[in-house]
């Protein structure tokens, strides 16, 4: 449940080369694929609006987006974007992002995998009696933590793949689910190499 590397990522890396020179038959496919992009940018005013504006202005999908400064001295932020589209559209997304002035680097973690994906959620559950006990039991099964407790409620912190969080949230639903807050995905390459 914690290992999130998808075996097919590695196979894709071999068949779809990284450069813009890539023009394999797969580029012409109309199949919608999901990608996780890591974008390092200058943490300057408006940079997130530029990235989001690119997606909305050109009609690209954003499934999730997270951003935070990762280098406080160099003022570099890392944006993790989960997007989907045909191979041609995905190539457009990468090149359009890459040509933006404050963008340092765009890495397609799905293609350049294997990579790890994680998401965190805060889940509030209010219940009594057996439901409350069941919620606590499931918390342990999902290796979640209790951040806050009252006599009739818990706030759980759960970390893992989006699928794991979906599963946890679904289980909490009949047990008094009140509120969910999710971070969106962050992702990093496996192994010693950085992006």
């Amino acid at each position: 449940m914690t290992t999130q590397t998808k075996p097919e990522n590695g196979q894709k890396a071999a068949s779809l080369r990284r450069s813009a020179y890539d023009m394999s038959a797969e580029m012409l496919s109309q199949e919608i694929e999901r990608r996780v992009l890591a974008v390092t940018v200058d943490n300057e005013s408006g940079v997130l609006a530029r990235v989001i504006g690119l997606f909305s202005g050109r009609g690209y999908n954003i499934e999730s987006l997270t951003v935070a400064e990762v280098d406080h001295t160099g003022h570099i932020s890392r944006i993790t974007i989960v997007t989907s589209g045909t191979p041609m559209v995905l190539r457009q997304i990468v090149t359009q992002l890459d040509r933006m002035v404050p963008v340092h680097r765009v890495t397609d973690l799905t293609i350049e995998g294997p990579s790890l994906e994680r998401e965190m959620a805060l889940v509030k559950v209010a219940s009594k009696g057996e439901a409350r006990v069941e919620a606590l039991r499931l918390k342990d099964a999902f290796r979640a933590h209790v951040l806050d407790a009252t006599l009739e409620s818990f706030v759980f912190e759960v970390t893992g793949s989006p699928e794991k969080i979906d599963a946890f949230v679904d289980l909490m639903r009949p047990l008094g689910l009140v509120e969910i807050c999710r971070t969106g995905i962050i992702a990093i390459k496996r192994g010693a190499e950085g992006i």
Binding site: L28, R91, T95
Partner: peptide, 17 residues
Amino acid sequence: IDPSSINKNIAVDVPII
């Protein structure tokens, strides 16, 4: 000179940026 112009509308065989 603009990589995003490559393969945007028409798939090409030899792109040169």
